[in-house]
Design a binder for these strands. Structure first.
Lengths: 101, 101
DNA sequence: TCAACATATGAACACATCCTAATATGTTCA
DNA sequence: TGAACATATTAGGATGTGTTCATATGTTGA
C-alpha cells in the first residue's frame, strides 16, 4: 500500500466513520432514497442530512439525481455497492472466536 | 443494520479513517511488528505511534505482546485479519467503470 | 406569479482529534 | 543497582468536525 493509497483509503473510511453518515449510506444500499426518506429513516434533522450528504457526494460514495421536487441519493456504481456490501457483511457477521489465540 | 450495529461499525471505520493509523494496521497485516519497526515504517514520531496504537488496541484492531524490551503489535484473530485484508483488496483493486450509469 | 413543498447552504459554537514536547514506565545487561 | 534502550503517558495548543439555526435555492401546481 503506497502512501497515497493509504491516504485515499483512509479518507473513505473517515467518511464511513460517522454513525449518521454510515446509516445514510447503508440506507441507500437497497436502492435510491429521497432526502425526505433518509431524514425519516435516520432520524436526524433535514439540515444535518443535507450536510452529510454533501460530504458523501464529495467523496463519491453517493450520487445525486433530482426527480421533480425530490432529490434521490444512490450508490454511484456497482463497484462501490459491492465493496460496501462486502464490508458490511464482513463486519456484521457473527464473530467466530474459536481460532483466537 | 440496527442503530447499535451502525454505531459499532462506524467506530471501526473511524479508527481506520486516519492515515497514520491505517498505515499502522496495514503494516501489521503481514505479521507482528515492534513499535520501533512501525515508527520507522510509518515515518512519524514514536510518541505519536504509541498514541495511535493505544486507540487501535482499545478498538481491538491490534493486540499487544511484549517480548523483552520490545512490544509487538499484531492482529488479534483471523476474523479481523480476513476482514481487513478483504477491505483493503476491495478498495485498492483497480476500478471497473464499464458498468457505470 | 405566488404559495407550498423539498432540499441546500452559510454562520457560529461546542467539542473532538491530531500532534508535539517533555517525562514516566518498564526491561535488559554490565 | 544503574545506565541504556524501548515504549507509554501526560499536558497543551492548533485545527477539524458535528451540530443547530436561520435562510437561500429550486420545483410544482394553482
Amino acid at each position: 500500500m503506497t502512501q497515497d493509497e493509504g491516504t485515499q483509503l483512509a479518507e473513505l473510511f473517515r467518511l464511513l466513520g460517522e454513525p449518521n453518515r454510515l446509516r445514510l449510506v447503508a440506507a441507500c444500499l437497497d436502492g435510491p432514497r429521497s432526502v425526505g426518506d433518509l431524514t425519516e429513516e435516520v432520524g436526524i434533522s433535514q439540515s444535518l442530512v443535507s450536510q452529510h450528504l454533501r460530504l458523501l457526494r464529495a467523496g463519491r460514495l453517493l450520487k445525486q439525481t433530482r426527480s421533480g421536487r425530490n432529490v434521490f441519493y444512490d450508490l454511484p456504481d456497482c463497484h462501490v455497492r459491492t465493496m460496501l456490501t462486502n464490508m458490511m457483511d464482513h463486519v456484521l457477521e457473527p464473530e467466530d472466536h474459536s481460532h483466537e489465540e
